[in-house]
């Protein structure tokens, strides 16, 4: 199952969350307007070198990209049809590099550190009566539930295959949505049992 956090400490775990997020934002800003295939290929290579430097467990996380391959295929097909396959390869390399870099931050940063780094940016929400802490908590919960949702999909698929001998595919979408809603209901109840989403800013 895909985990979004690496328990084995790497050198990137020691870098403060704020610096990692800032670096990610700057790389995104710089990479967005560039259309050079060698530069984008270089960025992708750099991302892969970064993963190699983090060890085997990090390299395994590259499997995260597997569910995205239909999207990549459509993207390349579209550009090929437009007669500009090079542009397609540039876009593909950029997406791959940015997804890998973003995941590198997620898998080496604990959620509480991430929340501490992001919360000041959400401070304007207070003007509208919102709670930055509650939003940060929602992001943490989203990260926590990604592996659980993968497991839920796998369980539904197994259940389908056990009775049909085939993969469930799109047919699982409706039961998956229903189960996800049920999961969110139970989780909301469990959060309420522990006092609900914190609204204060006690650091």
């Amino acid at each position: 199952m895909i985990s979004l956090y690496l328990p084995e400490r790497t050198w990137l775990h020691a870098v403060p969350a704020g610096w990692k997020l800032l670096a990610l934002a700057l790389i995104s800003l710089v990479a967005a307007p560039l259309n050079s295939l060698p530069v984008m290929a270089g960025l992708l290579l750099a991302a892969l070198v970064l993963y190699a430097s983090l060890g085997k467990a990090a390299l395994k996380q590259i499997a995260l990209l597997r569910p995205l391959w239909p999207l990549f295929l459509i993207l390349l097909a579209f550009h090929w049809w437009n007669g500009d396959i090079t542009a397609g390869l540039v876009v593909l390399a950029r997406i791959l590099a940015m997804v890998l870099l973003a995941n590198a931050v997620t898998m080496t940063t604990r959620m509480d550190a991430m929340m501490d780094a992001v919360e000041p940016l959400l401070a304007p929400l207070r003007l509208f009566g919102g709670s930055p802490r509650a939003v940060a908590l929602a992001v943490a919960m989203m990260i926590r539930f990604v592996p659980l949702l993968f497991a839920l999909w796998e369980a539904l698929n197994d259940s389908w295959r056990a009775r049909t001998g085939k993969r469930g595919g799109w047919r699982l979408l409706a039961p998956f949505c229903i189960q996800t809603l049920r999961l969110s209901h139970h989780t909301a109840e469990a959060l309420a049992a522990r006092g609900g989403a914190p609204r204060g800013d006690r650091r």
Partner: peptide, 22 residues
């Protein structure tokens, strides 16, 4: 909630954060 701790049937519904310490 501060006075009454509640443990549910399914721990996956109860655990909110990605790591144990959090």
């Amino acid at each position: 909630p501060r006075k009454v701790g509640f443990i549910f049937q399914n721990p996956d519904h109860q655990i909110i954060f990605p790591t144990v310490a959090e």
